[in-house]
């Protein structure tokens, strides 16, 4: 009898001890994390914005500033204030005179290893894809990752035909991936030998994204340029 009482007292004492230890450590840890988070957040955000900005500058040559728009539910674009992760974002790029040069569009799709995220530039004036950059890919190093470096492949996107059909509802000629050396038409994406699947994936991502977004962007072309003049 006596024993059991001491045992329970011990237990309650150690429960308090345990609670004290866990709460104490929890508070120390929470403090440490909050301090680091606050300390590093501005720099992280700046670096990430810089990385994105660099990518946008790469896909729309000759711009000096950008503005972010998001696709709304009723298929129009509005300037993105709060960043929503799910929203389809597009970035308009302007030159020194606030003249719209092009629109950078984020797109993604299944590659060989995992989802590939790309950014491509579109010029509504000439109706062409004018630049391309891989934001994120886990393609096989040495093979699939040629989509980021292969100069012959990247040359596809300097001036890729993306003309809209007469009723402006879709592309006149959809973007088609073809084998290396088999490019005949302006709207074909020439693949890479040895990275067939990855380079085809890029063609397919572009095909899906251009068909969906370019008609919308083209019909809202005014929106992108007027918005910038207002400021």
């Amino acid at each position: 009898m006596k024993e059991s009482i001491t045992a329970s007292r011990d237990e309650s004492a150690s429960t308090i001890k345990m609670l004290r230890a866990m709460v104490g450590i929890g508070i120390i840890c929470a403090l440490l994390i909050v301090i680091t988070y606050d300390g590093t957040l501005p720099r992280i955000e700046r670096l990430q914005a810089e990385a994105l900005e660099k990518a946008i500058f790469k896909v729309i040559p000759g711009i000096v500033k950008t503005k972010t728009f998001q696709l709304d539910k009723n298929n129009t674009f509005s300037e993105a204030k709060e960043k929503e992760k799910s929203a389809q974002l597009v970035y308009a790029g302007y030159d020194e005179n606030d003249q719209l040069i092009g629109v950078a569009i984020e797109a993604s799709g299944q590659g060989y290893a995992d989802i590939i995220r790309i950014l491509y530039g579109y010029d509504p004036e000439s109706q062409k894809v004018i630049g391309f950059y891989v934001l994120e890919s886990k393609e096989t190093p040495g093979l699939g990752d040629k989509i980021e470096k292969d100069s012959n492949f990247l040359a596809n996107f300097i001036s890729l035909d993306a003309k809209l059909s007469d009723d402006l509802s879709k592309l006149k000629n959809t973007v088609i991936p073809v084998k290396q050396g088999a490019k005949v038409n302006e709207w074909e994406v020439e693949g890479i030998t040895g990275a067939t699947i990855s380079s085809r994936a890029i063609g397919n991502i572009l095909d899906a994204s251009t068909n969906k977004l370019l008609p919308l962007i083209y019909s809202n072309k005014e929106l992108f340029s007027t918005k910038s003049k207002e400021e």
Binding site: S14, K17, I25, G26, I28, C29, L32, I33, T36, I44
Partner: peptide, 26 residues
């Protein structure tokens, strides 16, 4: 206390991992 030692260790380790994660991002 030895009953909660593993939980405490994990908590401590996780904290420093999170800190490292932020630091590398920065």
């Amino acid at each position: 206390p030895k009953q909660v030692r593993i939980a405490s260790y994990i908590l401590i380790i996780a904290t420093f991992v999170t800190i490292t994660d932020y630091a590398i991002q920065a």
